[in-house]
Amino acid sequence: MLRNSLLAAALLALSAAPLAAATLRSEVAVTGAVVTIGDFYPEAGRHAATPLFRAPDLGTRGAVSAHVIAERAQAAGFAEAGTDGLRQVVVERLALTIGETEVETAVRDALLLRETGLDADALQVSLSGFRGPILADAGQGNPVSVETLDWDRASGRLSATLRIRAANRTQSAKLTGLAQEMIEVYTAVRPIERGTIVAEADLAPVRMPRNRLTLRQVADLGNIVGLAARRSIQAGRPLRAIDFEQPVLVKRGTKVTLVYHTAGMTLTTIGQALSNGAKGDVIDILNLQSRRTVTGIVRAHDQIEVGTTRTRIAQLQETN
């Protein structure tokens, strides 16, 4: 009898003991239109989805009394709700800012999805007609959708209609602009005089529309470094392959070394170039000792490799 009385007293004492207060967040960020018990109290459990307040406007924040939060939560059935020592809680409604960058990205992605042959890294989109920025609900997965898209690949001209889902309404935007495949070509960073041998430091890349590119523009740095300017070149102008040539290694009238390689020996003598020559050019040279004209290939600066006929071997041997 005594044992049953003690057990009953213990149960009564437990039922009369106050429940432990739940933790109340001091700051709450939401993406939807309402703020729930679970937004305020992480331990809300089955009461988490119960709405308590309307959320502030998109992209704004406001303060709510902690006492009012606790009262409303308790009235909704969450008995553990309390103030946790707070006077107020700051509530912010998150928003996505839809600006020109987001709009251009949406159009660009739609174009790449439709035109599978486009190079994503080379595509550049510029649009006009967008009146923004527009705030959209951060809870939406994709607030911008492209409804219509027309693109002329040859000219790059583009028109599109977008649908943007804001907080309480959906609005349309009609845009026009350009979508161009860009390619990197090279320009001179400073004026280059005729005959100057081009170094990598003399050049800089610029991007230009692919449809304006011809085979004449230089798109590969390795194709011109080490070549000589065929004419004076202005800074900033896209370079053309015809602006360059192999540098002159032999100038007309200068003395050169004539070299002949044969099995086991090398013969040399002095000559005078009768024309200019770049590496690999075949030019005529006057042998200054024999006073005969020979033909050779420009191999290096002021160095000519002569032919391999027996007559030319004899000529070189006679002069040594």
Rank of each mutant, 00 (worst) to 15 (best):
211 N>T: 12
209 P>I: 05
166 A>K: 12
160 A>V: 11
166 A>I: 05
219 A>E: 13
168 N>Q: 07
211 N>I: 05
208 M>S: 04
205 P>Y: 12
164 I>P: 00
168 N>F: 10
210 R>S: 14
172 S>T: 09
218 V>R: 01
161 T>N: 10
174 K>H: 06
201 A>E: 12
184 E>N: 10
188 A>V: 02
166 A>F: 08
177 G>A: 15
157 R>H: 08
211 N>K: 00
189 V>M: 12
166 A>Q: 09
184 E>K: 05
155 S>V: 10
218 V>D: 04
146 V>P: 01
174 K>M: 05
184 E>V: 08
166 A>D: 13
178 L>W: 14
198 V>R: 02
144 V>A: 02
170 T>H: 03
151 W>D: 07
177 G>H: 14
168 N>I: 05
188 A>T: 04
185 V>T: 03
173 A>K: 09
144 V>E: 08
188 A>K: 01
193 E>L: 04
211 N>M: 04
218 V>C: 06
166 A>G: 06
165 R>C: 06
191 P>G: 11
209 P>F: 01
157 R>Q: 09
192 I>F: 01
178 L>Y: 12
204 A>C: 03
212 R>S: 13
206 V>C: 07
194 R>N: 06
169 R>M: 13
188 A>Q: 01
160 A>Y: 01
154 A>Q: 10
178 L>Q: 13
186 Y>V: 03
194 R>F: 02
198 V>S: 10
169 R>S: 13
210 R>A: 14
183 I>Y: 03
215 L>T: 01
165 R>I: 02
167 A>V: 02
180 Q>L: 15
216 R>L: 02
217 Q>R: 08
208 M>D: 05
174 K>E: 15
160 A>F: 02
177 G>T: 14
208 M>L: 13
194 R>S: 09
160 A>R: 00
194 R>H: 06
208 M>A: 08
196 T>G: 04
218 V>H: 00
197 I>V: 15
171 Q>G: 13
175 L>I: 09
165 R>W: 03
217 Q>F: 08
192 I>G: 01
200 E>G: 05
146 V>Y: 06
170 T>G: 03
200 E>C: 01
